[in-house]
């Protein structure tokens, strides 16, 4: 028996922080993305401000579109191709950022160096009024709190039984997800993450706009396999400028010899890592260069000078 996968109510930050995958069971096993905060997602429901979509398809016969969904905690890429014609049409429909509810399947791309990029392959995209967007966000934040509460209980009482959970009306799947999250992300600051939801709560109250003010690397998550991120200073230091130019040099070199003129992201990461620029630091540089408009990533995993 294969039940339909529920759409986990998730914030962009939680999704950005999710780097662990798990295969399901059965004949055609689904893939699940595990978050540090007790979500085990195959399908998600998100709400926020959806940017106008850009075409990232290689040619007309393989239409593929991407937009960014920003909520008060972060942003993720939302994609749709010709296999999701309805979602693709909706994705392409807007020319300005608009409040939107998105349902889709999560997709984790992992580079050679272990850096993960999460995107959502849209199944349903719906432009909504602001009140509906806030209501959906309220739902998302409430269920996120519910999962965080459950995680705290599991931490205090590791023997918490499925029977107890079931009696309280909490899905047993959540308990399993909470245990797995704790196992896979042992060093995550969950208190900080809870606090970081305050912008989302303010948005529910109508006190702020639909998306976050400043994009940032999630601070509440530490990936144990890579070195901890360095807090990005307000202005880049001389050292960081050096790293930026190293990154750009390598990008140019890769692009020069590639057939399509794009630099493969994995290739660039692997080259800069041999110069000592690794993991989240390399990613931070990439993000900053993208934000500053120096480089762009028109196709997932493919970079070029803007």
């Amino acid at each position: 028996m294969s039940l339909r996968e529920p759409a986990w109510r998730i914030t962009a930050r939680e999704l950005e922080s999710s780097l662990e995958e798990e295969k399901g069971e059965g004949e055609r096993p689904a893939t699940y993305l595990l978050s540090p905060f007790a979500a085990r997602m195959n399908r998600v429901l998100m709400a926020g401000s959806l940017s106008p979509a850009e075409s990232i398809g290689r040619d007309e016969s393989q239409a593929f579109w991407r937009a960014r969904l920003s909520d008060p905690t972060g942003a993720v890429a939302v994609t749709a191709g010709s296999f999701q014609p309805r979602a693709m049409a909706q994705l392409r429909a807007g020319s300005v950022p608009r409040p939107t509810v998105v349902v889709g399947k999560v997709h984790l791309f992992r580079g050679r160096d272990g850096v993960g990029y999460v995107s959502v392959r849209a199944e349903a995209v719906r432009s909504v009024g602001e009140a509906d967007e806030r209501a959906a966000l309220a739902d998302i934040v409430r269920q996120t709190f519910d999962r965080l509460d459950l995680l705290e209980r599991v931490e205090k009482d590791p023997a918490l039984s499925e029977e107890t959970i079931r009696k309280e009306g909490i899905p047993v799947a959540w308990l399993r997800a909470a245990r797995e999250s704790r196992r896979r992300y042992p060093n995550v600051d969950r208190v900080a993450f809870r606090h970081d939801l305050k912008n989302a709560v303010r948005r529910v109250a109508g006190e702020s706009g639909p998306s976050r003010a400043t994009p940032s690397v999630p601070t509440s998550v530490t990936v144990t396999r890579a070195p901890p991120p360095r807090a990005p200073p307000p202005a880049p230091s001389a050292a960081e400028r050096t790293e930026e130019s190293l990154f750009l040099d390598q990008l140019d070199e890769v692009a020069e010899v590639s057939a399509d003129g794009y630099a493969d992201l994995k290739e660039v990461f692997s080259r800069v890592s041999s110069h000592g620029l690794v993991g989240e630091r390399a990613e931070a540089i990439l993000n900053r260069l993208e934000e500053e408009g120096v480089i762009e990533e028109p196709i997932v995993g493919k970079l070029r000078r803007a």
Partner: peptide, 19 residues
Amino acid sequence: EIDLDAAAEELAARLGDRS
């Protein structure tokens, strides 16, 4: 219909303090 004000109040109470 969701009462957004009530929802925001309930959720704010669950934010917790940053320790």
